[in-house]
Design a protein around this nucleic acid. Sequence first.
DNA 1: GTGATTGCAAATCTTTTGCACTAAA
DNA 2: TTTAGTGCAAAAGATTTGCAATCAC
Lengths: 144, 144
Amino acid sequence: MIEIQKTENSRPYTEILNKIKSVSLRPTRQRLALGKLLFDDADRHVTAESLHEEAIAAGIKVSLATVYNTLNRFAAAGLLTEVVVAPGRSYYDTNITNHHHFFCEDNGTLEDIPGDAIKLASLPEPPLGTKVKRFDVVVRVEKD
Amino acid sequence: MIEIQKTENSRPYTEILNKIKSVSLRPTRQRLALGKLLFDDADRHVTAESLHEEAIAAGIKVSLATVYNTLNRFAAAGLLTEVVVAPGRSYYDTNITNHHHFFCEDNGTLEDIPGDAIKLASLPEPPLGTKVKRFDVVVRVEKD
DNA sequence: GTGATTGCAAATCTTTTGCACTAAA
DNA sequence: TTTAGTGCAAAAGATTTGCAATCAC
């Protein structure tokens, strides 16, 4: 029984329920709650650690291991994108459209750049035997 | 005494010696040997692990911790660039000019793209209170 | 019921660090 | 000699995994 679904805010949960079901994952209590945190607002950037803290603060009982597993499952299913900008820490982005990032190394903050805001004037041939999958632009900024 | 300097190939070692001295680092046996592996060829991409294996295979006695320390010192001194392309592993690049990368996730291979081969047609304003330091383009490719 | 998911703890992997020893200046 | 660098082993940080209990179907 998913008691949280009985509240007056049941519509968003239905959306998240459908989103999770649509990728053939079981809508468990933890996945629904994490999904609500992730997908209720647009363009969120989280780490496993930050999402876990947020969940605990919101009174959601979920282990860090499950947060890792959920982020990985969501990413593998295409619900999230993994963003690699800093060594030793993975960021997950709820924006799954083609886009890029500002990254502030001073405080580890990510901000989206719309895909159409950046155009490559040219691109050399990829290495022999390979084809281009996509490209990621990271614009590194610093506080001034 | 740096016995290896006595061989007939002493010229490259002089270059590496000077390179290391030029950034106020002590030219120890380990740094000279790692420097030779790194800088004798152009555009090398290594991880601490891969460079350590290479060194051991070449008969150089050096610990993994020292390889990490050396890569970090070299990078801090501007002799190397750290490249962030995959979660949980740091790559170091001997190309310190402005450039970008092809990255093949299938085998973890990096390949340089000259800086002038890529031009951004436009770039939105950076987040408030920040200024652009530089941008990195990673073109992700896959085997076909 | 059956198979997927959770949670915890233990394991793994990469990287850093403390400290006694060694080497460079 | 004075200070920096090395090596080992231990520690640290991020992430994954084994397994019994639990939950969705």
